[in-house]
C-alpha cells in the first residue's frame, strides 16, 4: 500500500480521479448556469440553494476546492518531473508527427484554466464570501442573477471567459479518455469513451461560452 502512494502510476491515478471529479462538477456548474438563460427566477432559486445549503457550503465546497488545488499542484509536480526525465533536450523534436497538440500541452491548457479560475474566484467566489461571511449581509435570494449579468457587461471579460473555455475544451479533449486509460480501462468500451469524451469536451465549454455571450448581448 505504501508503494501505491509514492509511485508514478499512483500519481497518474490520483490525477485521473481528481480530473474525473472536476468533470462531474462541471456538469453541475453548467446545469445551474444554463438556468440563467431560461429564467432569472430559476437561476436565483438554484443559486440561493447552493449558496445557503449547509451540506454544499460546509462539505462539498471544501472538497471541491481541495480537488481543484490537488489537480493543479499534482499536475505541475508531474510536469517538472517529466521535464527532468528528458535530461538533454532534442535539437529537433517532431511531436506533431505522432500525437495531438491537446495531449502534449495539457500543462498550457491547464495553466490557462488556472489563470481563469483566479479571475473567476475574484469575480464571484471572493465577493460571495465577503457578502455572506465577512460583511454578514442579510441573505437576498434575488441578487444572484443581477450579479451574473453584471459581470458579462464587459466585452473584455466576456472574451477572456470564452478564450479560457476554448482552452478548457482542449484540456478535456485529451483529459477525459486519458483518465480512463490511466485507471486501466482500455477495452471494447474505449471507442465509446473516447467519442463521449470528445463530445463532452466540445458541448460543455461551448455551453459556457454560449451563456457568457447570451448575457453580454442581452444585458
Amino acid at each position: 500500500m505504501s508503494g501505491l502512494l509514492k509511485s508514478s502510476i499512483a500519481r497518474k491515478v490520483a490525477m485521473a480521479l481528481s480530473g474525473l471529479f472536476l468533470i462531474i462538477f462541471l456538469i453541475q456548474h453548467f446545469t445551474i448556469n444554463f438556468t440563467s438563460v431560461i429564467s432569472a427566477d430559476l437561476f436565483n432559486e438554484f443559486s440561493h440553494f447552493m449558496g445557503t445549503n449547509f451540506v454544499v457550503q460546509a462539505l462539498l465546497q471544501p472538497v471541491l476546492i481541495f480537488g481543484v488545488i490537488f489537480h493543479f499542484v499534482m499536475g505541475f509536480m508531474l510536469e517538472i518531473k517529466n521535464r527532468q526525465a528528458r535530461g538533454v533536450k532534442y535539437v529537433q523534436f517532431n511531436g506533431s508527427a505522432n500525437s495531438s497538440w491537446a495531449s502534449r500541452n495539457m500543462i498550457i491548457s491547464g495553466a490557462v484554466v488556472l489563470a481563469f479560475l483566479a479571475l473567476h474566484f475574484y469575480d464571484f467566489w471572493v465577493p460571495e464570501m465577503l457578502y455572506k461571511y465577512v460583511e454578514a449581509n442579510p441573505e437576498d435570494p434575488s441578487r444572484y442573477y443581477a450579479e451574473l449579468v453584471h459581470k458579462f457587461e464587459s466585452p473584455v471579460r466576456t472574451g477572456i471567459y470564452a478564450l479560457a473555455f476554448v482552452l478548457l475544451a482542449f484540456h478535456l479533449w485529451h483529459g477525459f479518455s486519458s483518465a480512463f486509460q490511466t485507471m486501466g480501462v482500455n477495452n471494447k468500451y474505449t471507442p465509446f469513451i473516447k467519442k463521449f469524451g470528445y463530445t463532452y469536451a466540445v458541448v460543455i465549454p461551448a455551453g459556457f461560452i454560449f451563456i457568457a455571450l447570451f448575457h453580454y448581448f442581452n444585458h
Binding site: 508514478s8 508531474l78 517529466n82 527532468q84 526525465a85 495531438s100 495531449s103 495539457m106 479518455s177
Partner: peptide, 17 residues
C-alpha cells in the same frame, strides 16, 4: 514499476506517441 521509477523515467500522459 518500482525499478522503472528508480531509473528516472517520466510519467505517462497518454499522448500515444
Amino acid at each position: 514499476v518500482k525499478q522503472m521509477d528508480l531509473e528516472g523515467f517520466g510519467n505517462c500522459t497518454n499522448t500515444g506517441a
